[in-house]
Nucleic acid binder design. Structure first.
Lengths: 209, 209
DNA sequence: CAATGTATACTGACCAGTGAATATACCTTG
DNA sequence: CAAGGTATATTCACTGGTCAGTATACATTG
């Protein structure tokens, strides 16, 4: 029964990813996915119970690679800490300029399936964004920033706002605006840490990982 | 030929708005809209050339009322200028807690129709967001804020990010996080103005948190 | 042989859009 | 003013096509 290493299953998910990301969920038929994968629809239904399962698999397959990319962009960046956070947005701006870019697959799927709140794909999307937020928060805590959790949420808002707005206007410069806002908010948080001195309760958040 | 004051046409658009916002575009059939409006499909096609036209009419009908609501929320707010900007987000947080809330109709339509970049509905959505941004920018300029344009764009990013994230997690508290970020960014911009200029028009940009 | 995997061909429902006809309201013009 | 015309507005019944999902049978292989 279809493990995730199964080559046929992998091909199906790859085809589904291509099509769902490019066209949207309800705009892509199961037949189209099967044909793009070079198999028949029945084979697809051997590997997936329903189209909903296939949609969930599409997002599940994007989860780790997406997170890894963000982390890599941060790790390969240089400069002061706020600049390194901003670097994530700058890299994303470059990606958004590619003609096949269509925003965030998780967000777009959520928007399209907003009438099905318990849909498995939405749960996967929510978990993905929570992981990203948690990673940011941990990094902010490592920098001994006091409001690490709130700052991480603010970064998420800027990121997802940029996804939405850049897609709407087809203007990647909004991603750079987000980078600036992120840099400003992180820098301000760092400045508060520096000024606050020893009166605040930063002791609990100081040590790195 | 069907003016926008036409009562039948108005009924159709009202039904379309209800259904498209609640369920999404491709999830709602033209038959469903017609039935909900209490007419036949052919009558609908008498008033609208195609489903795409109907989708555009749905968003066009939301444009002015949405903008008016945001402006009203600002005008009815009290306190210092950054708090009044934040008030928009706070009001939106309350709206997002209603069970029938499904995010921003413009953004969700854009996400669903991302494979049709020139779609008339997307143009209407883009124009709507541009109007909102221009309104913010004008207000920031009235406050003599130097980077008014960029600050307006940052507000837009926070707003649309909050739309997306609140919809994803079904957690309206992210809207309040966005309010805080907005307040911080606006207050910082005001502080820069105060430092740079010669104390022209002091608004008490004092934050509580 | 039995389990796994794939294919052909089908089902019943639904979809966007249309053809032909009808009703209504207003506007000529004899 | 009345007879006839024309544009507006609406309905029923339909088309060609697509959709998610399935019944059944064939193939491969350990």
């Amino acid at each position: 029964m279809a493990r995730s290493s199964d080559p046929t299953r992998t091909r199906i998910v790859a085809a589904a990813s291509r099509l769902f990301y490019a066209e949207g969920i309800r705009a892509v038929s199961v037949d189209a996915v099967a044909e793009s994968a070079g198999i028949t629809k029945k084979t697809l239904y051997y590997h997936f119970r329903s189209k909903d399962d296939l949609v969930a698999a599409y997002l599940a397959a994007r989860d780790q690679p997406n997170l890894a990319l963000f982390k890599r962009w941060f790790e390969e960046s240089e400069g002061a800490f706020p600049d390194r956070i901003a670097a994530i947005f700058i890299n994303l701006a470059a990606a958004a300029r590619h003609p096949k870019w269509r925003g965030c697959g998780f967000l777009r799927t959520t928007a399209e399936l907003a009438n099905l709140p318990g849909h498995p794909a939405i749960k996967i999307g929510a978990a993905h964004k929570k992981k990203f937020e948690a990673w940011l928060q941990a990094m902010f805590e490592a920098e001994a920033i006091a409001g690490a959790a709130e700052l991480a949420r603010q970064m998420l808002l800027l990121l997802d706002g940029a996804f939405a707005v850049v897609l709407l206007h087809r203007d990647a410069s909004y991603m750079e605006t987000a980078a600036e806002a992120a840099r400003a908010l992180v820098a301000a948080a760092l400045a508060r840490r520096a000024k606050a001195g020893k009166t605040t309760r930063r002791t609990a958040a100081r040590r790195a990982s």
